[in-house]
């Protein structure tokens, strides 16, 4: 590709940041937080098939927002890397820090080298032997990596959700309390003007999983259906929007916002 006009590096990076940020904020949000028994992932996801939360290894889980095909590639890469590493050495030698660094390298180099940066934001969580050794890493589109002590909010409009979680989150919550905190957080992120009936998230609108410290080897476990309903706050249990309500699963929109008309938030 030829570069006919000079554009400053600064401007180039700003354009790329803007593209990535726009792509990420279009989707629905994901909350990851630590609770007394491990790590909890709660995503607003109307589909059953396209997942935002996944198992990577025995004690490591992954959550992502943004373009589905891109974070699916990254998820597969993480699973491959973890399995190759665990197979060549030992299962204990696969750590959350190693994978978080891997993702930071991939996103960071794509941000400057590739024609288009990844429009994704990731959270890599690792559950430890006790609640002090749980790890949450946030990796953003440009490869920045941060180690979050309590919770991570990604995708969609994050500010109201983060603000809400700052108020309600406490260390050492049990699982139902942690689910309530996360779901209430997600509900506070709905755009103004959402009808009151749609503000409550029921079983069919949530994707919930945990890294359960007490499980022996593979700690990742999805919580679905009746088991999830029991964990939800009282008022959310009866909410069950039918899958036929016309809302597509997944958050994907055409690349580049479908030639300019994709600037409206989708949810």
């Amino acid at each position: 590709m030829t570069m006919p006009f000079y554009s400053s590096v600064d401007q180039l990076l700003r354009d790329r940041s803007e593209l990535a940020r726009k792509g990420i904020s279009r989707g629905r949000s994901v909350v990851v937080l630590t609770y007394s028994g491990g790590v909890l992932f709660v995503a607003e996801n109307r589909g059953r098939a396209l997942r935002k939360v996944s198992e990577i290894y025995d004690r490591i889980g992954f959550a992502a927002v943004g373009r589905y095909n891109e974070f699916e590639t990254l998820r597969n890469a993480g699973i491959r890397m973890a399995d190759v590493r665990g197979y060549s050495y030992d299962r204990r030698d696969v750590t959350g820090r190693m994978l978080a660094n891997f993702y930071a390298q991939v996103l960071g180099s794509a941000f400057v080298d590739q024609p288009k940066p990844y429009e994704v934001e990731l959270c890599l969580a690792a559950v430890g032997g006790d609640s002090d050794s749980d790890e949450l890493y946030r990796v953003t589109y440009d490869g920045s990596i941060t180690d979050e002590p309590q919770f991570v909010v990604m995708g969609g409009t994050t500010e109201p959700i983060s603000a809400k979680l700052k108020e309600t989150y406490r260390a050492g919550l049990d699982l139902p309390a942690a689910v309530a905190v996360a779901v209430e957080g997600l509900q506070s992120g709905m755009p103004n003007g959402t009808p009151a009936a749609d503000r409550l998230l029921g079983v069919s609108a949530l994707e919930v999983a945990v890294l359960d410290r007490s499980r022996p080897r593979r700690t990742f476990r999805r919580i679905e259906g009746a088991a999830l309903r029991e964990l939800l706050p009282e008022e959310n249990r009866s909410v069950d929007a039918p899958a036929s309500s016309g809302v597509a699963g997944g958050d994907d929109v055409p690349a580049g916002g479908g030639a300019g008309d994709g600037d409206q938030p989708r949810s």
Binding site: L74, N76, A77, G78, R80, M81, D83, V84, V106
Partner: peptide
């Protein structure tokens, strides 16, 4: 001990671990 580069992990590939390791 590990495949040559990060690229091998990111490339579209098989769902089989054995096939992936055989190739890389």
């Amino acid at each position: 001990v590990t495949p040559a580069g990060i690229g091998a992990y990111l490339a579209p590939g098989p769902s089989s671990f054995t096939d992936f390791v055989t190739a890389n």
